[in-house]
Amino acid sequence: MSTQLTINGKSHQVDLPDEVPLLWVLRDEIGLTGTKFGCGVAACGACTVHIDGEAVRSCQVPLSDVWGDVTTIEGLGTPDAMAVIQEAWVEHQVAQCGYCQSGQIMQAAALLAETPNPTDAEIDDAMQGNLCRCGTYPRIRAAIHTAAGKMKES
């Protein structure tokens, strides 16, 4: 039952049953707690990570089905070296309770990778699966636009 995973560029050997979702491998086995548990049924987006660059709900991906390299919020940037999108989040002071923001940022990062200058409608489409009970949506939208602008410059 040993499974090999590449997470944030690092190789991990995991000894858990095949059906354990990636979310719980990350959180309880690897100790990467930036990815959050919210609903367990892909209804809130708090557990969003990238697999080969694609935003996925890690609560729905069994360990044995992880098909590529995993990137979590910790792999996107660090407090001392934040990604451009994270800098935009700080600039707009987006987070309130902050619990959903890892998932919001991972979802937005995937959107920007595919659509470098998204319209409001495209942001609506890409982000509507990510719930925020604090209601930070206006600042998330503003931060995505800012990040898009900065990424174009750089």
């Binding site: 994270q86 700080v90 619990y99």
Partner: peptide, 29 residues
């Protein structure tokens, strides 16, 4: 004046510790 929130960088980088993120040696779930 609006201050930069002290929790903002942590909550933007997945490093802020919520109750569910507490990890202790030998911890069971």
């Amino acid at each position: 004046k609006s201050q930069p929130r002290v929790d903002m960088v942590g909550k933007t980088t997945g490093t802020a510790e919520f109750g569910i993120d507490v990890r202790l040696d030998g911890m069971k779930f």
